[in-house]
């Protein structure tokens, strides 16, 4: 080969090497963080404080950016669906939802690809392909029932708030609770919101006024808060048990208005959900309870370190 040809080949080879190197380097430099949109049911983000802290920690650890999308209405399946579509259309790399209604049809969503990551937290959807990060809701219900069984007389009349049964989490809690509670009790009443009762407190007050009960069991934050508010408004003395972790629920547990709370570790839910999207870790459904734990707390155990650590977020 002539010397000129050698030089030409050398220069080409060198240029190619430098181009590839600079490409690889610039790819490294410009590797942008993933955008994750989180669409949680309810129109008050404060209730999700622990979950948010967990998500943000995972976002920091795995280089992702978490954006929270608030719903304008408290519970609206259609709005949540449209928000999911909007976020996907706005180029979110993944969507995490806390499903307001587990029956919502996600097949109507236009996905950019078949493997587009959608994940549920706290409350899932009826779709085997979409994973749910949550504690075992059925067992949480059972544990709550055990607390009632341990502390209440068998002749007590128990009101079970049946709101939000459209969420599989609440439904599973109810099933767990009911299947356990019937082992000791047989006097139940089931409270439900009626048409036109847009605010939960209204139905709670109506039920409390209409029917005398010894124990009220609420299986989600908003129902429990409604029951607390209603009892305070009506100055009713009922024993309240619930599955919740809101500041208000904890506060009334602390001052004795609420007897017992069962709560799940929402920090871990937030952390694991974002981590699994960002680093691709798959958490098996049957092992989820190993990662996400729930706890039972009453006014005597509220300030034990293990409960303080999980229940109270660091407020800056």
């Amino acid at each position: 080969m002539k010397r000129v040809s050698w030089i030409v080949v050398g220069v080409c080879f060198l240029s190619l090497f430098l181009i590839i190197s600079s490409q690889v380097y610039s790819e490294k430099q410009t590797k942008s963080s993933k955008q994750i949109s989180v669409i949680l049911y309810g129109n008050n983000i404060d209730r999700w404080q622990s979950l948010k802290q967990g998500m943000e920690q995972a976002g920091k650890d795995y280089e992702g950016e978490v954006n929270y999308v608030l719903m304008s209405l408290e519970h609206d399946k259609e709005e949540q669906l449209s928000l999911i579509q909007r976020e996907i259309d706005n180029h979110a790399d993944a969507v995490i939802i806390a499903a307001n209604d587990s029956s919502m049809d996600l097949s109507s969503i236009r996905l950019p690809s078949k493997k587009y990551p959608i994940l549920c937290v706290e409350s899932g959807v009826d779709n085997q392909d979409i994973a749910l990060v949550s504690a075992d809701n059925y067992k949480m219900g059972e544990s709550l029932a055990m607390e009632v069984i341990d502390h209440e007389n068998e002749i007590a009349k128990i009101a079970i708030v049946m709101n939000h049964q459209q969420r599989d989490s609440v439904k599973a809690r109810y099933e767990g609770f009911y299947n356990k509670i019937v082992e000791k009790f047989d006097n139940f009443t089931f409270w439900r919101s009626e048409k036109g009762e847009n605010r939960a407190i209204i139905f709670a007050q109506r039920e409390l006024t209409q029917e005398a009960v010894d124990v009220v069991v609420a299986l989600d934050n908003s129902s429990l808060e409604a029951v607390i508010d209603a009892t305070l408004n009506l100055n009713k003395n009922v024993k309240i048990y619930g599955i919740a972790n809101s500041d208000k629920a904890v506060y009334y547990l602390d001052n004795g208005k609420v007897k017992t709370l069962v709560y799940q570790d929402e920090f871990s839910i937030g952390y694991i959900s974002v981590k699994s999207i960002l680093d691709g870790t798959t958490y098996k459904k049957e092992k989820m309870s190993h990662y996400i734990k729930y706890h039972v707390v009453d006014d005597t155990t509220l300030y034990l370190p293990e409960n303080q650590h999980v229940l109270f977020p660091f407020v800056k």
Binding site: D247, K248, V250, Y251, D254, N255, L302, Y303, P305, Q308, F312, F314, V315
Partner: peptide, 16 residues
Amino acid sequence: PHVQELFDDSNFRYYW
């Protein structure tokens, strides 16, 4: 560090 439990805060706030 612990959550202060001495005083009542009607805003449901707890401080570490």
